[in-house]
Computed example of a mutant assay.
Amino acid sequence: MNTSALVDVEDVRTGVDALLRDHLATSRAALGSAYGADALPLLDATDVLLSGGKRLRAAFAYWGWRAHGGNPAAPTPAHHVGAALELFQAAALFHDDVMDNSDTRRGAPTAHLAFAARHRAAGWVGSPEQFGLSAAILLGDLALVASEDLLHHGLRDVPDPTTRRRTRDIFAQMRTEVTVGQYLDMLSQTVPWDDDHAGAERRARHVIRAKSARYSVEHPLTMGTALAGGSPEQIAAIARVGLPLGEAFQLRDDVLGVFGDPAVTGKPAGDDLREGKRTVLVVRAVAAATPAERATIHRDLGRLDLDDAEIDRLRDIIVGTGALASVDGLVDELATKALADLDTLDLDPEARTMIRRLGGAAVARHA
């Protein structure tokens, strides 16, 4: 099965999307009534971003829940958790695109550029660029508030207070980690290069875990486990599966950020190189490069005006140093470990199979 088909099993996508549509419709009515049409473009932009999501995080949460006894005949709480995760991701993407100065997201202009264009077209007073940046920051904040609301609604009918608390605690930890991870990612792009390549890779792995790996796979799985009434031991056990899978997921994303097809990824080719991302892929290339190759990477990484020929030159260095092959090997190593650990756990057999398939799809993806 491909990723889309996997997320459709047991109507996970249908349930999550229905909640997201209901939330947007309710918010549209409330904001339109209270503030008029001027507020509605915020919801339009959120709708655009949400419509392109794969729902992988929602699916990991659902099958973590099913794996530990969640009843598929009463899936609403798990769908609420999934919808909350999708809105949280939307918040992170709105803010991430501002910090990275990204031009496109899922094949469309990023929110800050879309709002700047709106300002410019209307002939409003002030800076269109600043208006766009401010609007995108507020969009991220609004999506974050909405994610909290959906989580609250999903948990209010869960009778066990310990289950509610454990699920909320994981969500709160996730929010903090992603925020810190964003800062660490930003910091890593500003510190001078040195010869401590092991330290640079260690920092890159910290960024992966905090910013993406844990909230992409580990925390959805553990939130689902907690929602099903899982014990601390069960939560810790599924986390040992989720973290390496999440790392493999992000490492694959880093490869796609350099070598992905723009028609599939929805972002310009080599965008991570223009943004100066010091990923494991880039760090390993620097570590294995010749002095001349290293000087090229140091000079060109993070240049927003890199042309296609310069992107190709950096790609050639990454391939020639063996960095691409070694990261591909690390992805396979992490995924193999995670799935081997998955087989040791006492889980619902159907759910175990689905987590395995979702993990494989996340790691082998092309977008």
Rank of each mutant, 00 (worst) to 15 (best):
residue 67 A to Q: 07
residue 21 R to K: 13
residue 57 R to G: 06
residue 61 A to V: 02
residue 41 P to C: 00
residue 32 G to T: 02
residue 35 Y to Q: 10
residue 28 R to T: 10
residue 67 A to F: 07
residue 77 P to K: 11
residue 20 L to P: 03
residue 24 L to C: 07
residue 74 A to M: 09
residue 51 S to I: 06
residue 70 G to P: 03
residue 28 R to K: 02
residue 62 Y to V: 12
residue 63 W to E: 01
residue 71 N to H: 03
residue 57 R to K: 02
residue 64 G to Q: 08
residue 55 R to K: 15
residue 40 L to W: 04
residue 34 A to D: 14
residue 34 A to H: 11
residue 42 L to G: 11
residue 39 A to G: 10
residue 69 G to K: 05
residue 27 S to W: 06
residue 59 A to N: 04
residue 37 A to R: 15
residue 44 D to H: 11
residue 29 A to L: 02
residue 45 A to R: 12
residue 31 L to R: 05
residue 58 A to T: 09
residue 64 G to C: 04
residue 58 A to M: 07
residue 54 K to W: 11
residue 33 S to H: 12
residue 32 G to H: 02
residue 51 S to A: 15
residue 64 G to R: 00
residue 40 L to C: 06
residue 60 F to E: 03
residue 50 L to G: 03
residue 45 A to G: 08
residue 39 A to C: 08
residue 57 R to D: 02
residue 53 G to R: 15
residue 45 A to D: 14
residue 68 H to G: 01
residue 53 G to N: 13
residue 40 L to M: 03
residue 25 A to Y: 00
residue 53 G to S: 15
residue 50 L to Y: 05
residue 72 P to C: 06
residue 71 N to W: 02
residue 37 A to T: 13
residue 73 A to L: 10
residue 53 G to A: 15
residue 20 L to K: 07
residue 33 S to W: 05
residue 40 L to T: 05
residue 33 S to P: 00
residue 30 A to Y: 02
residue 76 T to H: 14
residue 35 Y to I: 03
residue 57 R to W: 08
residue 75 P to K: 13
residue 75 P to A: 13
residue 68 H to Q: 02
residue 37 A to D: 14
residue 55 R to S: 10
residue 37 A to I: 08
residue 74 A to R: 09
residue 30 A to F: 00
residue 49 L to P: 05
residue 73 A to G: 13
residue 70 G to I: 01
residue 39 A to Y: 05
residue 32 G to V: 03
